[in-house]
C-alpha cells in the first residue's frame, strides 16, 4: 500500500477525481475569506483601511516559505530514494511558490508605500524574501535547462536544499537585526498581537491559499508527469537513450 503511492501513475488515478473538489473548496474559501477581510473585518487603529492588504500579504508570505520547505523536502527524498514522484511534486510546486512569493513582494510593496513611505528598502527581511524569489526562479530554470530531465532534477534538487538555509534567515531577520519591517505578530511566543476579528479572516485566507496550492499542485503534477513522458519520448526519437 505504501509503495503504491510512490508510483506516479497510481497517484494520478487517486488525485484526478479530487481536483474538482479542491477547486470548489478553494473558490468558496477564497470568497468567504475576501468577504471577511475586505468588508467584514474592522479597520486598524493606526493603519485604517490599508491594513486589509495584510490579508493577502501575510498568507502569501507563509505560503511562499511553506511551499519552499515542501520543495526542499521532496527534493531531499527524491535525491535519496530516486522516486520520480518526489521530483515531479517538487517541480510542480515551484511555479506556484514563485507566484506566491511574487504576490507577497508586490502586495508588501503596495503596503509599504502608504505606511512606511517607501516602495522598497534593502532591509534584512525584504532582501531575504527577494533572495527566496530568486531561489525559486533558479530552481525552475535549472530543472528545465538540461536535455535529460533526470540530470536537471538532480542539480535543481541540490539547489533547492541549499536554498533551505535562507528560510530561518527570513523568519528571524526581524528579530536579530533592526529592520524597517515589523516583528512577527502571530508565529511568536505568547499570545498573538492581533485582534481576534482580524485573526479569523487572516486564517480563512490562509486556508484558502492552502487549498489553492493543493488544487494547482494536483493539476500541475499531472502536467509535469506528461512533460516527463514527452521528454523520454523525445530523447528516444533523437537516439539519446534506447
Amino acid at each position: 500500500m505504501k509503495n503504491q503511492f510512490v508510483n506516479p501513475g497510481f497517484l494520478v488515478n487517486y488525485i484526478k477525481p479530487l481536483t474538482p473538489w479542491s477547486g470548489g473548496i478553494s473558490i468558496i474559501l477564497l470568497l468567504v475569506g475576501l468577504w471577511f477581510s475586505l468588508y467584514q473585518s474592522p479597520i486598524d487603529y493606526q493603519q485604517g483601511n490599508a491594513v486589509r492588504i495584510m490579508y493577502i500579504h501575510v498568507p502569501s508570505a507563509w505560503m511562499s516559505m511553506g511551499i519552499y520547505s515542501f520543495i526542499a523536502l521532496s527534493s531531499f527524498f527524491g535525491l535519496i530514494y530516486g522516486h520520480i514522484t518526489a521530483f515531479t511534486l517538487a517541480k510542480a510546486a515551484a511555479p506556484i511558490g514563485a507566484t506566491f512569493t511574487a504576490i507577497c513582494l508586490i502586495s508588501g510593496s503596495a503596503w509599504g508605500k502608504p505606511m512606511w513611505g517607501t516602495w522598497w528598502v534593502w532591509d534584512a527581511r525584504l532582501t531575504s524574501v527577494l533572495i527566496l524569489f530568486f531561489f525559486y526562479i533558479g530552481y525552475i530554470v535549472f530543472s528545465k535547462s538540461f536535455n535529460d530531465f533526470s540530470k536537471g532534477e538532480k542539480f535543481s534538487s541540490i539547489l533547492a536544499i541549499i536554498g533551505l538555509v535562507n528560510l530561518p534567515i527570513i523568519k528571524f531577520s526581524v528579530d536579530y537585526w533592526s529592520t524597517l519591517h515589523q516583528p512577527a505578530s502571530i508565529s511568536k511566543f505568547g499570545a498573538p498581537s492581533i485582534h481576534i476579528d482580524m485573526l479569523i479572516p487572516l486564517l480563512i485566507m490562509f486556508l484558502a491559499f492552502i487549498f489553492i496550492f493543493i488544487h494547482l499542485l494536483m493539476i500541475r503534477f499531472q502536467l509535469e508527469l506528461n512533460n516527463r513522458r514527452l521528454n523520454i519520448k523525445n530523447m528516444k526519437s533523437y537516439g539519446d537513450i534506447k
Binding site: P42, I43, D44, Y45, V51, M54, M115, G117, L180, Q182
Partner: peptide, 11 residues
C-alpha cells in the same frame, strides 16, 4: 520612513 508595530486592533 515610518515604522509600524506588530499590533493590529480596531480603533
Amino acid at each position: 520612513l515610518a515604522k509600524h508595530d506588530e499590533n493590529y486592533m480596531p480603533p
